[in-house]
Design a protein around this nucleic acid. Sequence first.
DNA 1: CGTAACATTGACCCCTCTCAAGTGCCGTGG
DNA 2: CCACGGCACTTGAGAGGGGTCAATGTTACG
Lengths: 258, 258
Amino acid sequence: MSRTVVQPGPQVAELRSEVSVDALYDKLVRRDDVSAQEKAVLRDVLGPSTLVAAGNDLVREGGWPDVSTVLVSGFAARYTTLADGGRQITELNVAGDFVDLHSFLIREMDHGVVALTNCVIRTVPHRALRHLTEAFPHLTRLLWLDTLVDAAIHRQWIASMGRRTALAHLAHLLCETYLRLEVVGLAAERAFDFPLPQSVLADVLGLSTVHVNRLVAELRSLEVVNWTQPRVVILDWDRLAGIAEFDPTYLRLTRQPV
Amino acid sequence: MSRTVVQPGPQVAELRSEVSVDALYDKLVRRDDVSAQEKAVLRDVLGPSTLVAAGNDLVREGGWPDVSTVLVSGFAARYTTLADGGRQITELNVAGDFVDLHSFLIREMDHGVVALTNCVIRTVPHRALRHLTEAFPHLTRLLWLDTLVDAAIHRQWIASMGRRTALAHLAHLLCETYLRLEVVGLAAERAFDFPLPQSVLADVLGLSTVHVNRLVAELRSLEVVNWTQPRVVILDWDRLAGIAEFDPTYLRLTRQPV
DNA sequence: CGTAACATTGACCCCTCTCAAGTGCCGTGG
DNA sequence: CCACGGCACTTGAGAGGGGTCAATGTTACG
């Protein structure tokens, strides 16, 4: 899949002023203080905004990127493709996510990252990240922590796939997505935009599109969500969280100095 | 589950001389140079060896540990327990694994780590890890990388659970475990000891014990493995890796400076 | 207003689960 | 030295969650 890059234009400029690096900052500051200097460092290492059209790869599988990418707006997904053509999405990325920070140290991408919607991204040279780890240990720990939370999310997905029912798995995904979006100001009052077709949700959940459709219908009939594309309204958070056995601890959204 | 700690005795001393911190070192040095100073730092921060009997928790769910734990020998597992009593193992740990390095920054354990066999462990105070990140950025990157590989392993498990057949999932686990054990000298010539009962493998794979038994029987009948507890002999690596669609890139076992 | 993409629904199938019984191995006590 | 208990492994039968295939509805948009 080729990469479409559109030079910053009016649309991008508008998006930049709206969220910019703030989404990433908002997430980090939920966990620990971020000093003015650290905030400035983050701003300085980020390159200009570019737009990647839906369906194109932000990062190509098998590549050896020399930059890491921050998602400024839009939805993206890490995915693995199997021989039979099946696709498994292993992580959903939302605004403020450092979608391939791990490529800084892992080096070779063993999977791709695709833009699920139009996405605005900004990149950071690995060289700058290396300097950051030499000069700003606290900021390094904050970024490390962010990758550790990614791993914690992975573990929850494993638990969902292995031992939760399909309905609970979907419910868990909704709870998780709501909180992650809320942190960056894209969800409020139990509602958020979630512009992913059911075929993509199927690749997230490891199910067929048909079954995802039936699960969505079931959540509707249980009256725990009102889901009319692309808007998700959670009508009964407690019941949804109950179905999912959702405990937000793993998202690490409390302030604990690192 | 309470924690049984046995003071270092003859048995522990013997194990220490055999592997000690070397397993962790062997793993790190597969990825990048580790200087003599860094090796000394690692040795200095590690506390004495203690033995944890099979079935006991190395780290308790919901705890706020102030140390991180290195597994010196034995097998351990991160697990999540669900309301219906079901258990999902989200990661297998082998000798040389920093089983809860992430607790240094995540702080609250959202899951437990259990000793699947008798385990020898050594701990590192979080305070020492914090100092390490201030003074030794390259070693910090190596430890960060190790947690990134954990996340990459999680992603493969997600792909296995979501889109691979149960047989391919088991085959993938065997390929992965073989390579991880080989790095620390516990596997060679396509054979290794894997002393986990099928009920534990079921909790790893998200399957029932009965079905795991049938999958093992199928791998035997395909003549790709010879599996007589606890010894696994891989008779045909290429065919096993083919069934699994196994690509070892994600284990990051090549030397690339970080 | 035709087309493409997505959502929905029905019918049938199969992979994996549950329940249950039976086997084999091994450590321990009589 | 053997009986016994416990644990793990094995096997069979029936059930069910989720898959596949296929058709139909719906919406957006050029």
